[in-house]
């Protein structure tokens, strides 16, 4: 028997849920929608007070202008720079983190638990704490304003997280596989190359993806370590274009900056979720 109040609840609940769902959707999506809208409207419309939230025409000139080679802020070159730096960083991260993660997960590394604990807690320290001495060291060695300098810093900053991601995936490979291979006389290296690497391919993809995204969005490091427009990354380039007063072009540049990362997140949505939740099921 259900009480009358419970019955009423059963009837009202779906409506309330639906309203809550719509409110949540609008709150999460509206800022992004507003940005796309601004990037697709002529400057005169953006600046007028009767801008329409559901426009009937779209205007692509901002993108054309931002992408044209003569633009004040070379956003195309910046996208290229970010591609180079992000791909190099992601590659270096995976190459360095994979053996380390394997060793920490499977081999009797002296002080392994300590190293792992240290790596995880280091990631949570404020980045600014390291910046001043690093800046001095990099300037002394001529590493500021270079791709190499950025890749070194990004790789160092992302590695602890990367090792943590990959170790999570390696942990899930059943130990019996190792045991069986060891009985067949396989060395740790053979085990790593023949068994672990093929089995953690999704993990490697996830690690690569995260390192790429984190490098792409990094702002403080290039802000401090690069001055030369030639090595400007996309996030820095975007910030520099905020000085420009063309609102539509700024929005278009912002859309171009977020697009690669947003697309990767959407395409690999399940993988991203899995990495986030890796710690939750332990």
């Amino acid at each position: 028997m259900l009480g009358p109040s419970l019955k009423r609840q059963r009837r009202i609940k779906p409506i309330l849920l639906q309203i809550a769902a719509i409110v949540t959707f609008v709150a999460m999506i509206f800022p992004i929608y507003a940005l796309f809208l601004t990037s697709l409207q002529p400057e005169s419309v953006i600046r007028s007070r009767d801008v329409s939230f559901f426009p009937s025409t779209l205007y692509f000139a901002h993108f054309a202008e931002v992408l044209s080679p003569g633009h004040i802020v070379p956003i195309v070159a910046a996208i290229g720079n970010s591609m180079i730096v992000s791909i190099l960083t992601a590659t270096a991260c995976v190459l360095l983190a994979l053996p380390a993660a394997y060793a920490l997960a499977r081999l009797p590394v002296p002080g392994g638990r300590f190293i792992l604990g240290g790596l995880v807690s280091i990631y949570f320290l404020p980045t600014i704490l390291f910046m001043i001495p690093l800046f001095i060291a990099f300037v002394n060695r001529g590493l500021n304003d270079t791709f190499l300098g950025l890749v070194l810093l990004y790789t160092g900053f992302i590695l602890p997280f990367q090792i943590w991601i990959l170790r999570g995936f390696i942990d899930r490979v059943p130990g019996e596989l190792d045991e069986a291979a060891k009985l067949d006389g396989a060395t740790y290296l053979q085990l790593f190359v023949r068994i672990i690497i093929p089995l953690v391919r999704p993990g490697i993809l996830a690690g690569y993806l995260f390192a790429f995204i984190l490098s792409w969005i990094e702002f403080l490091t290039p802000l401090i370590f690069t001055n030369n427009l030639k090595v400007s990354t996309v996030s820095l380039g975007l910030y520099r274009s905020t000085i420009d007063i063309q609102v539509g072009q700024l929005a278009a540049a912002a859309v171009l900056t977020l697009l690669p990362v947003a697309l990767l997140t959407l395409i690999f949505q399940r993988l991203v979720t899995r990495v986030f939740l890796a710690g939750a099921d332990k």
Binding site: I29, I32, I217, S235, L238, A254, T257, L258, A262, Q269
Partner: peptide, 10 residues
């Protein structure tokens, strides 16, 4: 999930 994919500068 989408706001996570927006770079902080953006």
């Amino acid at each position: 999930l989408l706001p996570w994919a927006i770079p902080p500068v953006v």
